[in-house]
Amino acid sequence: MEIKNFTLSIIVTNKAGVLSRVIGLFSKRGYNIDTLYVGPKVEDSRHSRIIMTSSGDDATREQIIKQLRKIFDVQEVKLI
């Protein structure tokens, strides 16, 4: 189980509380957040983009992506 760093791009609906949903998932399931950036999505005021670096083995990475996709206000999750 090799620990690797990876970066996620997460597009979320611009709603109150959405950032705590994303962060809450990480604390609830014991995933790492190494760096975090949140900002507006260019030319789209209804959505925001979160860029996050995290670390974990392959199985953890897959779980993080799948669990993020289950959050109702998360529109898209991409590994970049």
């Binding site: 509380g17 809450g24 959050i71 109702f72 206000d73």
Partner: peptide, 14 residues
Amino acid sequence: IAGITMPVTKHNYI
């Protein structure tokens, strides 16, 4: 209560 129940709901609203 939305904050409190965030980890134990599928989704919640204020």
